[in-house]
Amino acid sequence: MAKEKVYMHAEKQKHSFEPKIIAFVCTWCTYAGADLAGTSRMQYPANVRVLKFPCTGRIDPVFILKAFQQGADGVLVSGCHPGDCHYIAGNYHARRRFAAFRKLLEFIGVDLDRLQFSWVSAAEGGKWVEVVTELTERVRAMGPMNEFKELALDEQWSGKLDSPELKEAYNAI
């Protein structure tokens, strides 16, 4: 396993597409878990950018939306395991909120493979690496998340300004 990794790096694969991954994490568990991955010198793809929140309970669904709009190809939300919340119950509230929100996004047509939720404790540096690597690789294979980016470029009435009906109306004036 370790050998394989070294080999992978020696022949560092260049990918045609490198996804942008945004991670919303709580400071007490997952941020600390990611720190542990660092102190243990584990290796994982450099695609992830971490935003630290006090608690998953603080993470507003709008932030996820915002991240996609800002060009994120994948979003990770991660906090303390149930029962371990530093703030007693923040993660329980977050669990419900995101259970509902992901259903909404799914219904709107967002591929849920781009949105990952996980519990990563302060002791789970390995799990952090696993979750981030898996999400990065999955999203990389899926290609860029174009839906929101295209929306941002779209104008409301664009393409319809020269419709035959409009032209006819214009000519009639």
């Binding site: 149930p82 329980y92 669990r95």
Partner: peptide, 16 residues
């Protein structure tokens, strides 16, 4: 309401 309460046994099959 459902989003201002919780149960410790809520579904978390979507969470890794």
């Amino acid at each position: 309401g459902p989003l201002s309460s919780y149960d410790e046994k809520d579904d978390q099959s979507f969470i890794k």
